[in-house]
């Protein structure tokens, strides 16, 4: 099964940080020389509108895909999923600053806590590997990882063959691009503009239990449900820039804001936060997650000329009587809360 190429897409950082640009360019230059990979560069993945050529290109890639982005892998994966670029999560063996027990397949082998989760649906057999460019400063580390992935992919001939025969991609994509009645917000008028910064939630369906707390809490109409009542981000551009309130009320920590400064909200994985700094905000007097969510929502309501509602509307209640199964990320978040 020689000649099977893996596609590598480098998602550029926002802004013009020269260090980041250099890493992107060095990596691209190195990968062009690799016989078994096709390399492309797109603007920052999170900022792409549905009709941006970068996203159309991503959707057109049939086989295994490596995406290198300035995002947590979990965030990158679910941004892609949201945009109809689906695949099995590939396990990256990228060496972390202090090597953990891998990024150990957070969704392949769900623990008890994920047993009630919706999970991703209609996922083709191809693999998507998400590499976090913030993890290492040397492009050669990423090049070597791409080589390793490339070997891994070309070995798995059975999977690939069965997948290629089926060619489910186009039909599936069509379905995801146009889910019944609930089209992800089209890029209103911004179509020809260069990529602008965006801000919207991304749902991690490997954690989401469809509990609907987010749709209750958000008063800006960001959330909706599809034809089978699965929660989805329906009007993403209604979302208020900088406001991560729904993520704070989500009982499963399933809502990611990839650009938020708090790692847990930006999609850090349990066990892969290596090299990141500790957030001591709780220690220095940050309000509780719910208090803060309520404050953040009120600020945005007032900015819109509406009345602040405080904690009178949409605060979590559906979970009150349910037994809770927990995992390490829950522990981490609650550890923060106990410090007030």
């Amino acid at each position: 099964m020689a000649g099977k190429k893996v596609t590598v897409v480098i998602s550029q950082g926002q802004g013009k940080n020269p260090t980041k640009r250099q890493l992107e360019e060095d990596l691209a230059a190195a990968l062009i020389m690799e016989p078994d990979c096709d390399v492309s560069i797109i603007p920052h993945l999170y900022d792409l509108t549905p009709d941006h050529t970068g996203l159309l290109f991503l959707k057109s890639i049939p086989g295994d895909l490596v995406i290198a982005a300035w995002l947590f892998p979990r965030a990158a994966r679910w941004v892609l999923d949201r945009n109809g670029v689906k695949g099995q999560p590939g396990v990256s063996l990228l060496p972390a600053a202090d090597d953990e027990e891998d990024a150990a397949e957070p969704e392949d082998a769900p623990a008890d806590a994920q047993a009630r989760a919706l999970g991703a649906w209609d996922v083709p057999h191809r693999k998507i590997y998400c590499l976090d460019l913030r993890q290492q400063a040397d492009y050669r580390v990423y090049r070597d990882e791409v080589r390793r992935i490339s070997r891994e992919c070309s070995v798995q001939t059975v999977d690939l063959m069965s997948w290629i025969q089926g060619s489910p991609q186009a039909a599936q994509l069509e379905r995801y691009l146009h889910p019944q009645g609930a089209n992800p917000a089209p890029a209103a008028a911004a179509e020809e503009d260069p990529v602008r910064r965006r801000w919207y939630p991304v749902i991690d369906y490997s954690r989401c239990t469809n509990c609907m707390e987010c749709i209750d809490f958000c008063l800006f109409g960001v959330y909706g449900v599809d034809s089978v009542d699965r929660i989805l981000v329906e009007q993403q551009d209604n979302c208020k820039k900088g406001c991560p309130a729904c993520s704070r009320v989500c009982p499963e920590n399933a809502i990611i804001f990839p650009e938020h400064k708090t790692a847990a909200i930006a999609g850090a994985d349990v066990g892969t936060a290596a090299g990141l700094k500790i957030d001591l905000s709780k220690l220095f007097g940050a309000p509780s997650a719910l208090e803060q969510a309520v404050l953040e929502r009120d600020v945005e309501l007032v900015a819109d000329g509406r009345d602040a509602v405080g904690a009178t509307v949409g605060v979590p209640k559906r979970q009150a009587h349910k037994p809770v199964t927990r995992d390490a990320l829950d522990e981490l978040i609650d550890g923060l809360d106990q410090l007030s």
């Binding site: 500790i278 957030d279 001591l280 905000s281 220095f284 007097g285 940050a286 309000p287």
Partner: peptide, 20 residues
């Protein structure tokens, strides 16, 4: 009380700072 008033970054941590 608890209003965010600033930010700090150190070798070990990042944090927002809040009114006491």
């Amino acid at each position: 009380h608890k209003q965010e008033i600033g930010e700090i970054e150190s070798s070990k941590a990042v944090s927002s700072l809040y009114a006491p």
